[in-house]
């Protein structure tokens, strides 16, 4: 009962904070009436922004109206520079998904091997230590040069940035499986393969999933920057294109959607993590 009332009160506070934020935003960006006289040519040059004292920053009402327009037609396609937000987000999600899944396929088996073999662990450690801190975007030119395809290069960048947290967490989780659980399997004469699936995998799963959750977050951060660089499609390109169009309203809408999608991706992984977590 106390937790539900706490949740209710927290919800109320959240709504109040949102309303206050929107209110201040609205007040800060509203029109202040016609400003001082200026030559008609100059006024024409400056547009409404200068002539009516309207802030260059769109207010919440402008953003809301524009967002409604986007939501009504999320999937239209009027050529390279004018696509619905749904399509742009779809491109980004597809790239993140592909790069991320490839990283899962490499990181988890490799992490298992490294975690189970002290030799491999020691031998590969220097490579991992050097590769891990490299900004994923630093790989971009090399990827573009070797792959010669901007879209695949973006996927590669996602792959390379999401592999490290998963790899390290898998290694950590596998190497840290309690000795007593391994000993149980040993006294039962369970073979290496069955042991990997029936003891090590379930024991390490929460740690592995935590790594996967960190990775999806990083991948979603990186895709926006990567798409700004490679251009063409995707939510990152959309942000950059709308900035070039000086449409701050669309930029704000994109920021909002990037946040919401990122949150959803994180929640999905959080749910999986909860599914494999066992109480002790």
């Amino acid at each position: 009962m106390t937790t539900s009332s706490l949740r209710l009160r927290a919800g109320v506070v959240s709504i109040v904070l949102l309303a206050a934020f929107l209110g201040i935003w609205h007040l800060a960006t509203r029109s202040t009436g016609t400003t001082a006289a200026m030559s008609p040519e100059y006024a024409k040059l400056m547009g409404l922004t200068a002539t009516q004292g309207k802030s260059a920053m769109p207010g919440p009402v402008d953003v809301g109206a524009q967002l409604w327009e986007h939501l009504k037609r999320p999937f239209y396609d009027n050529g390279p520079n004018d696509k619905g937000l749904g399509i742009q987000l779809g491109y980004s999600i597809a790239r993140v998904g592909t790069g991320y899944l490839l990283a899962v396929l490499v990181a988890i088996p490799l992490g298992f091997l490294i975690g189970m073999s002290p030799l491999l662990s020691k031998a590969l450690d220097p490579f991992i230590q050097v590769l891990k801190p490299i900004s994923p975007l630093a790989w971009m030119p090399l990827a573009l040069y070797t792959i010669k395809d901007s879209s695949i290069s973006a996927i590669f960048v996602i792959f390379i940035c999401s592999i490290w947290p998963m790899l390290l967490n898998t290694v950590f989780g596998v190497a840290g499986v309690r000795k007593e659980w391994i000993n149980v399997a040993r006294t039962l004469e369970v073979g290496t393969f069955r042991r990997a699936f029936t003891v090590i995998l379930p024991a390490a799963a929460p740690t592995i999933l935590t790594g996967m959750r960190i990775s999806i977050g990083i991948a979603w951060l990186v895709i926006v920057a990567a798409e700004m660089l490679v251009g063409g499609t995707g939510i990152g390109y959309f942000v950059w294109n709308e900035w070039n169009n000086l449409s701050i309203t669309n930029v704000i809408i994109a920021i909002l959607l990037i946040g919401i999608i990122g949150m959803l991706l994180d929640q999905i992984l959080a749910r999986f993590t909860r599914m494999v977590t066992f109480p002790e």
Binding site: E180, W181, A203, E280
Partner: peptide, 13 residues
């Protein structure tokens, strides 16, 4: 040769 461990060593999942 079965072992009963001090810390019971049950698989918690």
């Amino acid at each position: 040769r079965a072992v009963i461990f001090q810390s019971h060593a049950l698989l918690p999942w």
